[in-house]
Design a protein around this nucleic acid. Structure first.
Length: 271
DNA sequence: CGAAACACCTGTGGGC
DNA sequence: TGCCCACAGGTGTTTC
């Protein structure tokens, strides 16, 4: 489900309901997520939620006891804010129940998501250790792409989807940013000019920012935390449009598999 | 070492 | 209508 815009939209949706509230208990109906949900998460009970932050596609719920609940939505995770009395449905794995009767509920059919509990004394999670810069900050710039791509044989599409290079660029927005930049996704990262990396950097920032403004991309099942869909799907130029005319030149959009992922591009506009 | 393949898991849509 | 296969927005691990 989520790339960075969808995670950010989720964060914006849930944060006002959580911040300043006290956790009364945590219900784990199924601990079998990507990693087992730790028993220690029960220690969150009684703590106040100070902030809901985001790093890459991880949501970080900062607690008054100095611990952090780390959530990742994987491919199919969804967060809803509901009355805690709402009967759970299939794949409603975790509830973070608040003292005011509201709960944050995680539903994740494929269970590729994660819910971890990081305490001050714990070894720092390796998950967050090797992440590149946030794409919407000035820490992410063209020079970084130019420097890191030197000599790289990997396809430029895989390069910008590498979380060590820049975080948050998933399959949809990698395809869209490369279309906006006129770059063939199959081109080797080391064979993209500095000038084009300047354009690509701005395209990544623009496409992610616009997607956040539009509430994310709803393809099959993404919904904002209020249950409404995102509206970015209607802005997609190439993703999922195999055989349909390029919106610039009317050439049929092509698809190829790169790095196990479906990849869409215009053979005329991108080189 | 870098690059590619594999793994995890369930639901859905298309073709027959 | 039903069955089977292919595929899905992510990312850590294994293999070459």
């Amino acid at each position: 489900m989520p790339e960075l815009p969808e995670v950010e939209v989720s964060r914006l949706g849930i944060a006002p309901h959580l911040e300043g509230q006290t956790i009364s208990r945590v219900i784990v109906r199924d601990a079998r997520l990507r990693w087992p949900v730790p028993e220690t998460i029960q220690q969150a009970s009684g703590s106040e939620i100070l902030a809901v932050n985001r790093r890459a596609k991880y949501l970080l719920i900062q607690l008054s006891n100095q611990a952090v609940i780390v959530l990742h939505l994987g491919m199919s995770g969804k967060l809803r804010v509901l009355p805690a009395t709402t009967p759970p449905v299939k794949h409603d794995h975790i509830d973070i129940v608040l003292a005011n009767g509201i709960c944050l509920r995680l539903n994740d059919p494929r269970r590729f998501g994660a819910c971890l509990y990081q305490q001050p004394g714990d070894a720092p999670s390796k998950l967050l250790a090797n992440l590149g810069p946030e794409p919407l900050t000035e820490d992410f710039d063209a020079q970084r792409l130019i420097t890191l791509s030197k000599g790289k044989q990997v396809a430029v599409k895989n390069f910008i989807m590498d979380n060590a290079v820049v975080v948050g660029v998933g399959n949809i927005y990698a395809n869209e940013a490369l279309f906006m930049s006129g770059i063939d996704p199959r081109r080797k990262a080391g064979r993209v000019s500095a000038k084009r990396y300047e354009v690509l950097t701005e395209a990544i920032k623009q496409v992610l920012a616009k997607a956040i403004r539009q509430g994310g991309t709803t393809l099959k099942d993404f919904t904002q935390s209020d249950g409404n869909p995102g509206y970015f799907a209607q802005s997609l130029n190439v993703y999922g449009r195999t055989g349909e005319p390029c919106l610039t030149c009317e050439t049929p959009i092509k698809s190829v598999v790169i790095g196990q992922r479906n990849t869409f591009y215009c053979p005329t506009c991108q080189s």
